[in-house]
Design a protein around this nucleic acid. Structure first.
Lengths: 224, 224
DNA sequence: CGCACTCTGTTACAAAACGTTACACTTTAA
DNA sequence: TTAAAGTGTAACGTTTTGTAACAGAGTGCG
C-alpha cells in the first residue's frame, strides 16, 4: 500500500485477487514478527496478501530507514530486480499469503492468465509509487498524515455506527519512516488533527474519522 | 533515471538495450519541447530512449509538481497502469526513441524475448523507485543534490582530462521538483558544493566533479 | 502482588533546515 | 532593443526536527 491520490477504482482494482487461477503452492500463514525475506535474498516466490499486514523496509548504513510500503490484502509483494529482493519484508499483523513462483511472473510457463495478472500487479505498483513520490517530495507533514489516514480509511476503514474507524497496526515510527517524517512530528500532527476534531484517537491503534471531508481537504493542501 | 544507491551494475544493466529484437516500429526522432504523452492518455506505445533526455512529471491541482524521472538512454518509459499513462512526458534534449507496442509488454504476442526484456525493465523500474523513496523521504538537501550529481556522473558523466564532467540539460526548477526541494535550495546547495571545491560550475549546464569521493561521501550522509 | 525496567508515545522548547520573498543579473527570444 | 524567463544571492520567516522530560503500557523478577 502506498499513499496514492484518491480514486474510485483503487480498492476494486487492487483487491481484485488472482483467485481463479491454479496456485502453485498452498497458502501460508505467518505470525507477527516473522520475516518473509531480506534485502539481497534471491527471489523464489512472490506473495499476494490474503489477510493480515506486511511491512517492506529499506535501511541506510547509518540507520536511517524508509518504509517502502505496507502490504494489505490484495497487494502483491516480492517483485524481483536482477533476481533479488531489494527490501526487507516482515509481518505486522499475522497474515495469510498466497505464494506464486517467480517464474510465473517472469516466464509465465503454464498459466498465461496468472502471468498477466502478476504483470498487471507490477504495473499498478509503478503507478502507485509515482503517486507516493508526489507525497514524499511535495507534501507537508499535515498533508502526509491526512493522506495516510484517508487512504487507509478508503482501503481498510470500518464502519463504527456514525463514523468510520481505522486500525493502525504499525507503530508511530513506522508511519514516520513511511511518510518521511519523525515520530515526534507524526505524534504532534495526530494531536493537532485530534484537537481540530477531525479525528478522535480512541486508543493508540484506533483512529476514528470524525470529518472525512476535512481530512481529505487537508490531504490535498487546504489550510487547516 | 532515478537517484539510486550506487552500484556497479546499474549502468550496464539499464543500458543493456532491447537491441537484438524485431522492432514493431521504426525509431522516432523528437525535438526539445515535444510531448510524448500526457497523464490520462491511453497507452499505445512504450519507448526506449536511444539518445537524448526525457522528463516525466506529475502535477497537483494547486500547481505543485513532481518530476518523477528523467529518461536517459537505456531507460524505458510509458509503462501503463489500467491501460493509461499516469505522468506527462516531454523532451528535454532532442531524442531518438524506439517505440514498442503496449501489447509487446502485456501479452508478448510474437516475441517472447522482447516481452521478457520489457518486463525486466518494469521490474528494474520498481527497484529504482524504491531507492528514490529513500532519497525523497530520508535525505537532506545536500545529500539529495550530491546524490543527484553522483548518479548523473556514473550514468552519463564524461571525461574531461583530469576530472569528470556532467551536463545538466534540465533547469534548476526541474532538479528541485525531482529532489523535493525549491530552486533556491538547489541553487544554494550547488554554490555550497562549489565553495567547498567539490565541484566547479563551468557554466549553468556544466558541472565539473573535482572530488568525486567527497561528493559520494556527502550523498551518503558524511558531514560537509 | 508490587516494583523496577523498558518501550512507545506525547509534549514543550530550542535549534536547524528549508522555504519565502525580494531583487539584481544574465541569457534568450521576440 | 526590449521583454521575458531563468538563475544567483541575501535577509527573513516558517516548518520541521532535535532534545529532553515525562506518562502509560507491558514485562520480568523478586
Amino acid at each position: 500500500m502506498y499513499v496514492t491520490i484518491p480514486s474510485d477504482h483503487t480498492m476494486a482494482e487492487s483487491t481484485a485477487i488472482l483467485a481463479a487461477t491454479t496456485p502453485s503452492a498452498p497458502q501460508a500463514q505467518l505470525k507477527r514478527g516473522a520475516y518473509l525475506f531480506f534485502e539481497g535474498d534471491d527471489v523464489e516466490w512472490l506473495y499476494q496478501v490474503k489477510s493480515g499486514v506486511l511491512r517492506l523496509t529499506r535501511l541506510l548504513e547509518d540507520g536511517r530507514r524508509q518504509v517502502i510500503a505496507f502490504g494489505y490484502p490484495g497487494d502483491v509483494v516480492g517483485f524481483p530486480s536482477d533476481g533479488k529482493h531489494h527490501t526487507d519484508c516482515d509481518v505486522l499483523v499475522s497474515a495469510r499469503l498466497q505464494p506464486f513462483r517467480r517464474a510465473m511472473l517472469e516466464s509465465g510457463e503454464g498459466d498465461p492468465v496468472l502471468h498477466a495478472a502478476l504483470l498487471q500487479a507490477a504495473l499498478r505498483e509503478i503507478s502507485a509509487m509515482q503517486d507516493h513520490f508526489m507525497m514524499l517530495g511535495r507534501k507537508s507533514a499535515v498533508e502526509k498524515v491526512a493522506s495516510f489516514l484517508s487512504v487507509l480509511d478508503e482501503r481498510v476503514g470500518q464502519d463504527q455506527g456514525q463514523y468510520r474507524q481505522v486500525t493502525l497496526p504499525m507503530c508511530r515510527g513506522d508511519i514516520a519512516d513511511f511518510l518521511g517524517l519523525t515520530t515526534e512530528t507524526v505524534s504532534r500532527t495526530l494531536t493537532q488533527l485530534r484537537k481540530s476534531k477531525i479525528i478522535a484517537i480512541e486508543n493508540i491503534q484506533t483512529v476514528v474519522i470524525l470529518r472525512p471531508t476535512a481530512l481529505l481537504g487537508l490531504s490535498m493542501g487546504d489550510r487547516g
